[in-house]
Write a protein that binds this DNA or RNA. Structure first.
Lengths: 335, 335
DNA sequence: CTGAAAGCGCTTACAG
DNA sequence: CTGAAAGCGCTTACAG
């Protein structure tokens, strides 16, 4: 069922029918009624590719994220989809699987006009951002959330990473920790850098040689991380506090403690960035720095749609910073 | 940059360039080389809407799922996206948020040829499947995973739900449970029915009046579920075993036990369907029936692509049944 | 208020 | 092996 057939059924021209369906001021009310009724009766729906081609707009956005089997990202996607559905946009999803090459390939494919805009969170290993620069040069609206690229002037939705990490570290210090390890994820992701700076800054407030800070570089390979954390905790002067910069590292730290029989929080206190809904049910319950993932997704989508539709663009901040929430639980309690 | 411009640069006709880019046998090797080189140099990419319109194919599929902030679904989506990326397909994602009306609206929108095929898992409340029947009538390839509709002849990817529930219930019986509650989710989802049947069938093997079985209807509202489970466990003759038919109910059961101080597994043993990666870190560690979500996603996508491309369609089973794995942990251990 | 016509950017059957 | 032309199904500037 296409416009031509529908027009024939109605004994009207294609142009009149098309205009009636789009509620054009050029068409009489009576004709509109007739056309709408017939379209409904025959279940007519415009071919999206023909419309897109003609209008050079697709009402489609792309979402490019490192992974999906991850509470933070799946909650953020939930927010993005909610706004998109509300605004009548379609969402294409692409996973980079934390691979910079895949990310590049995906972004290159998105340069052909398939989408009106893109929401991204970078792969942990993305250094070269020429593919993103090219998007920007082609005036394809782009919004980052969480893992954003520096050196590119597009809106970014992040959280108060320096402050939340600072506060989390202060919490450990207050609870009596003197030797605290920051489990870093990927040190060229800007949000991880900020978390690290927050940690270091809090440690500096102690200004005392009794205190030790550790920066422990971890990655995406869980078994490698396991070994790193195991070695860390088997040292004679092991840390008595841990700040996990991402969820998977908090979980791996729990695993290690379980395995080598180190008691949390007695022997080591742990706090971590996490969006786990079961953090309070862990053994022991996990003190969490929780990002407002859903809200970040909503915000990213709202800003992208404003960019696409050029509405209120003047009022879009370069950076939107939402606040994480710190929830203190047993993993940081005093004995 | 479009074909016309590219052709002009090359002093060739649009048709020759188009055919060269598509590696047509009609074009000489030398010309192909020339065209490819120029296309690369000028970063030419075909307009997807023009191609789609002309070819009446979009290399795009839709994924319609109840929610995404859920381990089972996000793992399944991961599998689907992996296969899609490998085959060069694009994936549109739509969330029904467990709302049958939204599901209907989404599916209606997908009837206009936007996608070559659809992978779905039904909302918990979908009863009327006329919208799905219509897809089928329009010959839009459709594949279900997990929550499938009966009465519609399309491929389904599910797990051995009767058997896994039967086995889980037998495990509780072996561990000494005599009064077992099956926390049901939505009793008109066929996979939940099968899990319930598996439970009942296992209970019947006891064939003894000392044994009690409970079918406890729950829903998607966590706070309602909480109250239901709380009341269940506050009864004088409360159950000593629980089979949770979905992850969220296992978690809510843990919450209730935590709150009203019922000891797991001493006072009540719990086993549940879950894809939680932290099940082994819960207090106590949770005995799990785990579905191979990623593999289900891969399988669903593979079958859909065969349907779309009409390759090996004759060998596609109506139902593909993968096996869940039962992992026994502390929540079902004997005292 | 209605309709004929051009054109979005491709692909492909056909002619040469 | 190359190119002219039709057409996928829309939208819209323009004529009447």
């Amino acid at each position: 069922m296409n416009l031509k057939q529908l027009a024939k059924e109605l004994n009207l021209s294609i142009s009149t029918v098309s205009k009636a369906l789009r509620d054009s001021y050029e068409i009489s009310h009576a004709t509109k009624q007739l056309v709408l009724a017939k379209a409904k009766e025959l279940n007519y729906q415009a071919n999206p590719f023909a419309s897109n081609l003609r209008k050079q707009k697709s009402k489609t956005i792309a979402l490019v994220v490192p992974e999906i089997a991850n509470n933070f990202f799946s909650q953020a996607i939930n927010g993005i989809e909610a706004i998109a559905q509300d605004k009548g946009y379609h969402v294409l999803i692409y996973l980079t699987h934390e691979d910079a090459q895949k990310e590049k390939a995906i972004v290159n494919i998105l340069q052909n006009g398939r989408v009106d805009g893109i929401i991204m969170s970078l792969s942990h290993q993305t250094k070269d951002i020429s593919h993103l620069q090219m998007l920007h040069n082609q005036h394809i609206p782009l919004v980052f959330f969480d893992r954003a690229a520096d050196n590119i002037k597009v809106p970014k939705i992040t959280t108060n990473d320096f402050q939340s990490s600072y506060d989390a570290t202060q919490l450990l210090l207050q609870k009596g920790c003197k030797s605290i390890a920051f489990l870093s994820f990927s040190d060229h992701i800007s949000i991880i850098q900020q978390r690290m700076q927050g940690f270091l800054s809090a440690m500096q407030t102690t200004n005392n040689s009794d205190y030790t800070n550790w920066i422990v570089p971890c990655g995406i390979d869980n078994s490698v991380n396991y070994t790193i954390i195991e070695q860390l905790l088997q040292q004679p002067h092991r840390p008595d506090g841990i700040v996990a910069s991402v969820e998977r590292l908090a979980i791996t730290a729990y695993e290690v403690c379980n395995q080598i029989q180190i008691q949390i929080p007695d022997q080591v206190k742990i706090i971590g960035y996490t969006n786990l809904q079961t953090a309070f049910l862990l053994q022991p319950s996990l003190s969490a720095i929780t990002q407002p993932a859903y809200e970040m997704g909503c915000e990213a989508a709202s800003i992208l749609f404003r960019l696409i539709e050029q509405k209120g663009v003047a009022f879009i901040a370069q950076e939107t910073i939402l606040k994480s929430v710190i929830i203190e639980r047993s993993s940081t309690s005093t004995v």
